[in-house]
């Protein structure tokens, strides 16, 4: 029993807490330099996190019991209460942030989906849900500043919930959509190039190609790759676009014969490219797609509560050093000299 008591005291001590904090800071510093992507998934880091968490829980518990004990002994000064409450709130806030973080790491679901304009994705297959949720991307739009740089990216979507038509929503950067506990973020975007092949014996229906995708030309052993879409082509910028505005849209393509490169070219929309005798290909515009992040995080509320408690605790603890006995004394008027 005595050993257990000693162990408890040791595990909940500030010394151990500080040692673990220093260790986690050192490991985080080393991890950020040597293994920036993998370090925070390692067993070592998780172990330190767990030990720190245990120490914080025990420390918070000690703080609360100390507070209750001293209050029942009659020590009820305003500053005493404020100090204890601030410390308990602050430490409990950190504990909650750690709980929320762990919940996020083990229970949250987060997936990136790509939706082409006019297409629908079934959200309930991405994030298992009791409700059938269908998200349709009605329009993807970019707004611009006067200098041509993008000011915002908008995905205009509609969600069908259990076969019932729901309202239309707009998702943009910094303004995610929160629907039935699922959050949808505007993460990125791109374009599919519309390719049409005309072999002379009747056109082949148009096909959407992603950048880097290849289409075989029927009746030949040749293929064409839509290498890159450049919305605002200017020769000085090479393969880069001057802006995202479609001022001078071009498609960089490459033609292959049995996987051997025949040539590379640059085409405007509607321009006929002769692939072989009597066989033509043209690019008929682009269809934008939005890259959305679909996320459900059951730990977010816990983290938010912890963050709030941390802030409240820290602000309250700031008031504590203002009490008279802790106040550093300013120099008396007659003693005030520069260059102390």
């Amino acid at each position: 029993m005595q050993h257990l008591n000693q162990l408890y005291r040791y595990a909940s001590s500030m010394k151990v807490g500080i040692t673990l904090l220093c260790l986690s800071a050192l490991l985080a510093a080393a991890g950020s330099v040597f293994y920036p992507d993998a370090f925070f998934q390692t067993v070592l880091f998780k172990l330190i996190f767990l030990l720190l968490f245990s120490n914080m829980v025990l420390c918070s518990f000690n703080q609360i019991s100390k507070f209750v004990k001293l209050r029942s002994n009659g020590r009820r000064s305003k500053w005493f209460c404020l100090k204890r409450i601030s410390l308990v709130t602050l430490h409990a806030g950190i504990v909650l942030i750690m709980v929320g973080g762990a919940t996020n790491a083990y229970c949250s679901q987060s997936t990136q989906v790509t939706v082409t304009e006019g297409n629908t994705v079934d959200l309930s297959t991405i994030i298992p849900s009791q409700r059938a949720l269908q998200l349709r991307l009605n329009q993807f739009e970019i707004s611009f500043y006067a200098n041509g740089s993008p000011s915002q990216y908008y995905s205009r979507v509609s969600i069908t919930d259990d076969s019932r038509y729901a309202d239309n929503y707009t998702i943009s950067v910094n303004h995610p959509l929160n629907y039935a506990g699922i959050k949808i973020y505007q993460e990125s975007f791109g374009y599919m190039v519309n390719v049409k092949v005309d072999s002379g014996t009747g056109g082949v229906p148009g096909k959407l190609l992603a950048e880097g995708q290849t289409i075989n030309i029927p009746g030949t052993d040749r293929s064409i790759k839509a290498y890159k879409y450049i919305p605002d082509f200017v020769p000085d910028y090479g393969m880069n676009t001057r802006s995202l505005k479609p001022n001078n849209p071009k498609v960089v393509y490459s033609v292959y014969e049995k996987e051997a490169l025949l040539g590379i070219g640059l085409a405007s929309f509607g321009e006929k490219i002769e692939i072989s005798k009597g066989v033509y290909v043209n690019f008929n515009g682009v269809t934008p797609f939005a890259v959305l992040r679909i996320k459900r995080d059951p730990g977010i509320l816990i983290v938010a509560t912890g963050g709030l408690m941390l802030i409240v605790g820290v602000c309250l603890s700031m008031l504590y050093p203002l009490q008279k006995k802790n106040k550093p004394q300013f120099a008396k008027k007659e003693d005030r000299i520069y260059g102390l």
């Binding site: 800071a25 950020s32 925070f40 950067v173 910094n174 995610p176 973020y185 993460e187």
Partner: peptide
């Protein structure tokens, strides 16, 4: 709000934590 993740172990976040 912006990236869908309140903590990404980004170098700036790690060093702010340190």
């Amino acid at each position: 709000q912006a990236w869908g993740s309140y903590w990404s172990w980004d170098p700036k976040e790690i060093w702010a934590l340190i």
